[in-house]
Amino acid sequence: MPALSIRNLVFAYAHRDADNPFSLRIPTLTLDQGEQLLLSAGSGSGKSTLLNLIAGLMDPQQGSIEVAGQNVHALTGASRDLFRGRNLGVVFQTFHLLQGFSAIENVMAAMLMADKPASEMQPRAAELLSKLGITKINALVDELSVGQQQRVAVARALACKPALVLADEPTASLDPTNAAAAMDLLQGLCKEQNAALLCVSHDPTMASRFTKRITMEELIAASAGGTGFQPVREGAHP
């Protein structure tokens, strides 16, 4: 069972400016368990829209997105939210840690929202943070360095042992040293937990980290060939 399977996906914004229409078409995209894919995409290419669709935060007009064998868009309301919490981990460009919470509380919050048993929260969060080299687990996240904050974000994304991790420009806010360290940890931890990783980035140094990569041009070509991912402008598409 693949971690991610996209088929015949079509999405268009309902209230988009008529002079600037936008749609996203992806015939197929598959990511197996433990597989790691780098998607190189620039601004305005539709990468955020794709991630939101995979996370179930937006609904496509056509097609299906399955995560761990479950069609995300067949679920509604709270059950979709809970499914997302349990099966998807997300690492954001700007971390989006919960301000006023300690490092361990940020990780535990993910498990709480996914309705994980209370007895598992503390040990699991502490174990993850320890693996990622965070020693001050009770320090408020505001008191941590930027690199440490990103590591807390990685721990949070993997807290519920998700099938798929979405990383949206995970190193954009980090210096090269911290970026390399964060990616080592993210990729290592995903591999260890057999979680698939879809990393979206326009950082050229990331390419060497992934054996499976797709650039925007390749995606368009792949789409023409019946596989892959293609952002197109409405009207420009045949």
């Binding site: 309301g77 939210d81 809970l82 919490g85 989006h96 919960l98 301000q99 993910a110 929202m113």
Partner: peptide, 16 residues
């Protein structure tokens, strides 16, 4: 809004 959105991504329903 951002904190609420993060909690939603983490699995919190709108009613929660």
């Amino acid at each position: 809004r951002r904190q609420i959105a993060v909690l939603r991504v983490l699995g919190a329903s709108a009613s929660r």
